[in-house]
Amino acid sequence: MSQQFIQLIVSGLAVGSVYALVGLAFIMVNEATGVVNFATGQMVAIGCFLSVTTGIQMELPLGPAYALALAAMALFGIVFYGVVFRPLQDRPVVTVIIGTVMIGIVIQNSALMTWGSVPFRPRSPFGRQVVDVFGAAISAHALFVIAIAFLLIGLLYLFIYRTAIGARMRAVAQDRDAARLMGIGVDRMFVLTWVIAGLLTGAAGILVGPMWFADVNMGDPIALKAFAAIIIGGFSSVPGAIVGGILVGLAEMLGAAYISSAYKDGLVFLVMILFLLVRPQGIFGERIGERA
């Protein structure tokens, strides 16, 4: 029993930390630029497939393969900024939502044309090694995912709150016009935000590949869970994304184990809706009224 429980918890943590990474990409963009990016899931898929290209098709060693894939994702962030964000920047929320959905459709089908519909199985740096954790058999890659996700989130936190550039980004997020008057290059901060979003989703994609296989349709299900995660955790806070992601991951695992495997996704969305109704700011978020 306890050994099974450990296994469920670790699986839940691994799944949850992926949701946290994706949720964080979502929050970063929304906070800094005010855009609700519904193409986040497709960006995860692109990240995953770029690592397929570098790691499987070009047969690079995993280190350079990952670095190259991440560099390409950073570039992808810049392109996204130029093609989607800039033209839609000052439009109403809903126009931007539809715009990002449309670009998501474009991305997903370009990926389908590029990589085909047959899934790939990317290698893990740890191969298929299994580790013994208190008697439970845990895949080494799952532990790697948890570690890297937390490392990245920690680095991002330091970057935003402990560096000068991070301070400027926060200034832009709080008041764009005031920031501009203070001489901050607002556009450059936007570009940087999209680059970070590209890197976070890219990292998430690279990490999930060996666990869940690379499949061009993988984006939407992951993004939907990440949405639920940030609503539960709080739409505008870094700790919120982490806690929300982990909670959703655990709810999925424990819900399937102890309640109903058929309705576990329904359960997650039910909790999300309850949060929206009772505590829309999430666990960590500020009150919404303050952000009209």
Partner: peptide, 9 residues
């Protein structure tokens, strides 16, 4: 993508 709970049951 993760059926470990079901398999464990």
């Amino acid at each position: 993508n993760d059926m470990s709970a079901q398999l464990q049951k």
